[in-house]
């Protein structure tokens, strides 16, 4: 039993570190996790689900804005990107955030091609992040089910 927990814990730790190393997450995510305590046990997952809902909504907004034939309202797209950038930096979704930065530049330069490309990448990225985090939470759950405690991961 202990061995299983230990293995799960190790797996969890490795997985988390890999997420940091691959640049999916950054320190803000750690900070976020720190904010979760007994007072608000599901804080992280709440915030994350909010974030992903946001993502879906914003990306579909942007897709719609960029899909229209004729003139594209870049300011509208820009506002959405700004929102997404804020959200992603708040949760520590590093890759999405960096993409948002370049996306925003494209918007400001009114580069239609660039915007579309960035939108696609953001879409891919956030979905990838979602699966990764899903996996991580699954691991967490397994650990807790197995009676262990989720280890604090020191990413350094």
């Amino acid at each position: 039993m202990d061995a299983l927990i230990a293995q799960l814990q190790r797996q969890f730790r490795d997985y988390t570190i890999s997420l940091y190393q691959q640049g999916f997450l950054d320190d803000q995510f750690t900070e976020l996790k720190k904010l979760q305590d007994d007072g608000s046990p599901d804080f992280v997952s709440e915030v994350l689900s909010l974030f992903f809902e946001d993502c879906v909504k914003l990306i579909s907004n942007m897709a719609r804005a960029l899909d229209t034939t004729g003139t594209v309202d870049f300011s509208q797209v820009g506002a959405s990107v700004h929102q997404l950038k804020g959200s992603s930096s708040s949760v520590g979704a590093k890759r999405v955030k960096t993409l948002c930065v370049s996306f925003k530049e494209c918007c400001e330069a009114k580069n239609y091609e660039g915007c579309v490309r960035c939108l696609q990448q953001v879409d891919i990225e956030y979905k990838a992040l979602k699966t990764k985090l899903q996996d991580m939470f699954n691991l967490e759950k397994q650990i807790i089910q197995a009676g262990g405690i989720v280890p604090q991961v020191d990413i350094n």
Partner: peptide, 17 residues
Amino acid sequence: VDDNNVNLRVAAGALKK
């Protein structure tokens, strides 16, 4: 005050802490 839900949530969490 923030229009971004996520940010709002995170900031609120931090201050609540």
